[in-house]
Every structure is written in C-alpha cells, then in structure tokens.
Amino acid sequence: MSTSTATRPAAPAEDGDPAGGGSPGGAARVGRAVLAVLSRSWLVVLVLVAWEAVTVAVDDHFFPPPSQIAVRMYELWFSGPASSAFLTQEALDHFVPGIGRLLLGWALAAVVGVVLGVALGRSELLHDLLDPLLQFFRAIPPPALLPVFLILFSIGPRMQLATIVFGIIWPILLNTMDGARSVDRLHLDTARVFGLSAPRRLVRIILPSAAPKIFAGLRISLAMALILMVISELVGATNGIGYLMQTAQFGFDYQAVWGAVIVLGVLGNVLNLLFTLVERQVLGWQHGARQLNS
C-alpha cells in the first residue's frame, strides 16, 4: 500500500469493474473508498462553507458564522480539564442534570408503559374499557400540559419529570398494547401445547413477539422526551441546556444560543445512535427474518 497512489485521481477509470469481484488493485480500492466518502460528504461540506460565507458576508449579530460558534462553544463548555472529559464547570452543571432527567423520565415511562401495555393487551375487557381514554390522552399535545404541571409542582425537576413522563408514556403504552394483542395465535398454542407456564409465556413468547412494536414506541418517546426536556427547561428550570439557551438569549450572547442548539442536535443524534445500536442487538432476529421472507 503506497501512499503516493492513494490520492491518484486515476481510480474512477476502473469503476467499470463489478464490485466485490476478485481483488482489485490497492490504488483502485483506495480510490473507490475516497470516491465513496466524497459522494456522501460533498453536500455537508458545501453547506458548511456556504453557511460560513453567507454569515461572514451578512455580518449580522443574530447570524454568527459557524467558526465563531465553534470557538464560543469551546470557550464556554469544552475547555475543561481532562479529568472531567474536557467539560467546563458550566457544562457539567447544566448538561448532566438535564440529560439525567431525560433518561430517568424515559426509563420510568418505559417501565410503566410496558407493564400496563402488556396487561391491557392481554385482557380484552381492560383493552375495551380503557382504549378510548388512552387514545384521548395521546391526542393531547404534551407541551400543553406544561402549565398544569407548573401549577402542581412549581418550577423544578419534579415538574420536568412529570411533563416528560406524562407526555411520552402513551406511544409506549399503546404500542405495547398493540404488540401484546397481536401475538400470533399459533405462537401461543404451541406454547400451551408444550406446557409453558404463564410467566414463561410472558417473558419468552409475548414480550419478544411484541418487541418490534415496543421498540417503535420507545423510539418515538425518546425523541419526544428530548423535546419535552428542552421546552420544560426553557419555561421552568434553574439549570439544563434549555435554561442555558434562555439565559444566553437574554444576555445577547447569540453565539451561545446557536451553540446550545448544536449541542442539543448532537445530543439528539447520540441518543438516536445508541438507541439504534441497542435495537439492532435486541431485534436482530426480526431484521434477518424479514429480509429472508421478502
């Protein structure tokens, strides 16, 4: 592998080669890899460059160039000591509690939602009784409840947790219910024929069979939890990323406002990525089964 050939632009000439056939030359392979990266990333680069160029040209306070935002983010939050993962004290004080509430609220909603969902899904009577009510609760836009929880709990973490849990539990509950109701009858008959006890039927048959739908609900809820975390911090909190954003705005520190948006964007992406990894691990069987069936 010589580095001198790695950047040689002759590689595209070999593109006619069918992919995966035998062993193409090292240079061609590297060239193709570079091309693949380029074909995926040119637009991102273009957008960033355009953003920088336009903001520099316009020179508007509200529209700081991304380079300045990055510098400001570094100063404020990412220039801490190595012992605290390079986070500054401000970052620790505000990032950690907010994310903690988000995860705690999501976990609470997940446990309660799955337990109730399975119970309602396996009982025809309970399902029929409660379904209209649950559909109504789900239809309420969750942020609308924020003022109610502000009155009930006043400003602070309890109000934020209540907003998150009450706002995101419905997709989990309703999806679990749906999944538990639609377990294949032959799956259950087989389990009965082979004498599986009720708890084992629940753990080995009903939950795995409902898992794809449960995960779909959990994914929707995670995104919604992040939204509710931010809005509850914007309206009624004394710390958190949303709170930082609010104070930066009041202090005319527009670079920090943009910075907070970027931090939240990265947070959303990290959560999404972690969730996808876990989901792939747990639902690997489903992916394979579906691919083969289609």
Partner: peptide
C-alpha cells in the same frame, strides 16, 4: 403443526 414458520419462534 403444519405452519412451522409460525410455530417456531423466530427470536
């Protein structure tokens, strides 16, 4: 059962 694909558990 006849329908092995549903009688066996895919997970």
């Amino acid at each position: 059962f006849q329908d092995y694909s549903r009688s066996l558990y895919p997970w």
